[in-house]
Nucleic acid binder design. Structure first.
Length: 399
DNA sequence: TCTGGGGTCCTAGGACCC
DNA sequence: TCTGGGGTCCTAGGACCC
């Protein structure tokens, strides 16, 4: 079998770069990529964490997901900019549209990451490494920000390669380079080996990816169960997964969710329900937009001690705000431990496309009426955003 | 004013059925 | 009179990713 050629493309400091480009386009004098700057959440609303950092900020030891408080301690003159998610979606769409001209086999891995299967394009592109450079440079010229591209024989190695040295670089990690380029790295650098797994591996004396590649599956099985084999194969640079465009992907139990960190801890169940109401509405609308129905409604709570707990329940396939809200409220009533709540959210899981439910005539009539009302409200809310229209029963204060 | 928000996947344990 | 046991569905919790 011929070797595959896979690219992994990663926008350097995506949120910060995209904000920087947008600010410059709007006449802002500073390029925030060149100063100690971060994109971060709102501290006053208790969402103060670092979402992206400039290379200078990184030099001060600031890491993604640090608190803003920590970041300021590490670098007092740090400049903080808010995130603009709509801008990021727009930049992301723009990028993916552009990438499609090189291959139709693109997998969007996140808002700023993509896998491209370049196998079989040898006739078109003789030198894939050169092509990667061309794409990288063209993106910089066209869009004004830099990317890293990893070139390898599978997705895992391409992903590892794009992570090597940043920014604005192309790296290769072909099968014959794995020992030399990947094995000396610490295990925590291995994709899908997170903090918990890395800690355990270190405690077993497995420190580098090379150590892990040579480890005995039997010995690791005790600690990692079925994960053991996967970790060792990954360390060897083995990965047979395909590049699958989103549309063609089948997800086992598709879910959508929304959650909110509250600006102070709530101890009043009615206030919690008000939040659930808005969330039910938002998810209901998303469901209807996707033309899907949910069969599982769940809530998630995080208390003042950062302890999270969740409860879920199967429901008849539905896309109605009222059912989602009612179920969420019941779950809250039954399971809230009366602890101060820092975060609350709703999750809809096991989404389906068709609603194979038998309805009685009466409920059909009721249904129709609710559907008409919901449809009108959706259209207004989609147009004007958020909860422009809400039932009178919910008309009062905001979060 | 220290610790976001949106996802996928896996596992353990209990209920229930034959 | 010693406790079967396989399969499926469901829930809660957690690991991992960005």
């Amino acid at each position: 079998m011929k070797d595959r050629i896979i690219f992994h493309l990663d926008v350097n400091n995506a949120f910060l770069s995209w904000s920087a480009v947008d600010l410059l386009e709007h006449g802002y004098k500073k390029d925030i990529r060149k100063i100690p700057a971060i994109i971060g959440g709102d501290e006053t609303r208790r969402r103060g964490i670092v979402l992206a950092k400039s290379p200078v900020a990184k030099k001060y030891g600031i890491k993604t997901a640090d608190t803003i408080y920590e970041a300021k301690k590490k670098c007092p003159q740090i400049e903080l900019y808010p995130p603009y998610y709509e801008l990021y979606s727009k930049k992301s769409r723009e990028l993916f549209t552009y990438l499609k001209k090189y291959t139709p086999t693109i997998e969007q891995f996140s808002v700023d990451e993509a896998f491209l299967d370049m196998s079989g394009t040898n006739l078109l592109y003789k030198d894939h490494v050169k092509l990667a450079h061309t794409i990288k440079d063209d993106i910089k010229k066209r869009f004004g920000y830099t990317v890293n591209i990893g070139v390898a024989n599978n997705k895992l190695c391409a992903k590892m390669a794009s992570d090597f040295e940043k920014p604005d670089k192309v790296h290769t990690l072909f099968n014959d380079e794995i020992k030399e380029k990947m094995w000396p790295l610490p295990v925590e650098d291995l994709f899908m080996c997170g903090k918990k797994s890395a800690e355990r591996l270190h405690s077993l004396g497995i420190d580098t990816i090379g150590d892990l590649a040579k480890a005995d599956v039997g010995k690791l099985y005790k600690h990692f169960k079925n994960q053991a084999n996967f970790l060792i194969e990954s360390a060897k640079g083995i990965d047979n997964s395909k590049v699958i465009p989103r549309k063609e992907r089948t997800i086992k139990n598709e879910s959508i969710s929304t959650s909110r960190t509250l600006s102070y801890d709530y101890t009043d169940i009615d206030k919690l329900k008000e939040i659930l109401f808005k969330q039910a509405e938002r998810l209901g609308r998303e469901l209807r937009q996707k033309k899907k129905y949910t069969t599982t409604v769940g809530i998630v709570l995080k208390n003042n001690l950062f302890k999270s707990y969740s409860h879920q329940r199967k429901v008849e396939a539905t896309n109605k705000n009222s059912v989602i809200y009612k179920t969420a409220c019941e779950l809250l009533e039954r399971n809230w431990r009366e602890d101060p709540i820092r975060l609350i959210g709703i999750r809809l899981a096991d989404l389906t496309t068709n609603r194979d439910v038998q309805l009685s005539f009466d409920s059909k009539e009721e249904n129709k009426e609710e559907e008409i009302i919901q449809d009108v409200m959706d259209r207004i809310n989609n147009k004007f955003g958020g909860s422009s229209v809400i039932p009178a029963s919910m008309k009062k204060k905001k979060d």
